[in-house]
């Protein structure tokens, strides 16, 4: 019985973890290139959720088709925030960029509150379900997982097979070196910030395919915290590391629930959260480069 439940949870965990991983890639990309932690990360996921919701409800656009729109909106937002605020803070203390990204998130939340009210919304897009006996997987979830994996692969290819992607990797390795090679570092910063935000907004669309309800302006907070843990699992500065970090996170979160549930007197769900943050500390201490890379 427990094993059936555990295997069901683990499978669900992998599927959800893939989407979480996708939702963290933008954070890692921005940190990798600009060394800025986007504390307002969750707010951009929230924007993506509203993009999917609005397109579906007003124009009947199926959520997967909202992805390009989300990418464009995200990249535009990224450019606006980069040139109006982030760019001038890159050389400043940590404090300034942390507060600035947090404030960007607050602006988005408050604007969305004015546009959509703070009511929790949702949409209904039924595609049927896959019943495996020990657990049930709705097709929309599988699609979200497939989409996440696909975007992960595309990002990998872009980084390794295109000039633009390689230029960006150069900047990650060394600003100075890239500059010497004639790369416009400032533009690379702007581009990676906006791609990072674009990816995050897209992940918001995919997340609604997973959970199409409870969409509200303040939904981002818990995703920001999850994204931190996942990013650290993946090495913080590596976007596809983040994808695998997501898978691991999903497995651990869902798996540890079943284990904690065996111990009387505990609230297993809260304990899984405790566990994931404890894990964050351990990894930061022992393997700050993440689970994948060797030291």
């Amino acid at each position: 019985m427990i094993f059936e439940q555990l295997s069901g949870n683990l499978l669900q965990g992998v599927i959800l973890g893939g989407v979480y991983g996708m939702a963290t890639m933008g954070l890692s990309l921005i940190f990798g290139v600009l060394k800025v932690v986007n504390v307002g990360h969750g707010a951009f996921i929230m924007v993506g959720a509203y993009v999917a919701l609005t397109l579906f409800q007003t124009f009947g656009v199926a959520p997967p088709l909202a992805v390009p729109a989300a990418m464009v909106i995200g990249m535009a937002l990224g450019m606006v925030f980069y040139y109006s605020a982030i760019r001038k803070l890159l050389k400043g203390p940590e404090l300034a960029s942390l507060l600035a990204t947090f404030s960007c998130g607050v602006i988005l939340e408050e604007v969305c509150k004015q546009l959509f009210t703070s009511e929790a919304r949702g949409y209904n897009w039924e595609l049927g379900k896959l019943d495996l006996g020990f657990t049930v997987l709705p097709h929309a979830k599988l699609l979200a997982f497939g989409g996440s994996a696909l975007i992960g692969i595309l990002l990998y290819l872009w980084f390794h097979k295109t000039r633009a992607g390689m230029a960006m990797r150069c900047v990650v390795e060394s600003d100075e070196g890239a500059r010497v090679c004639g790369i416009d570092v400032d533009w690379e910063y702007a581009l990676s910030f906006s791609i990072g935000i674009g990816l995050t907004v897209v992940s918001g669309v995919l997340l609604t395919m997973f959970i199409p309800v409870g969409i509200n302006p303040y939904m981002g907070g818990s995703y920001t915290l999850k994204a931190f843990v996942i990013a650290v699992l993946g090495g913080l500065a590596s976007p596809y590391g983040a994808f695998f970090g997501g898978l691991v996170f999903g497995l651990i979160e869902n798996g540890s629930y079943t284990l904690f549930a065996q111990i009387p007197g505990l609230e297993p769900f809260a304990m899984t959260r405790f566990f994931s943050f404890a894990m964050l500390l351990v990894i930061l201490l022992l393997r700050p480069t993440g689970l994948l890379k060797a030291k």
């Binding site: 949870n9 669900q12 965990g13 959800l16 907070g221 818990s222 629930y257 549930a261 297993p268 809260a270």
Partner: peptide, 20 residues
């Protein structure tokens, strides 16, 4: 009889437990 934390994003593990 089980709780989930505030601001939860996914209830699957709790609900499979409930299903059992």
């Amino acid at each position: 009889k089980r709780t989930y934390p505030q601001a939860v994003a996914d209830l699957t593990p709790l609900l499979s437990d409930l299903k059992a």
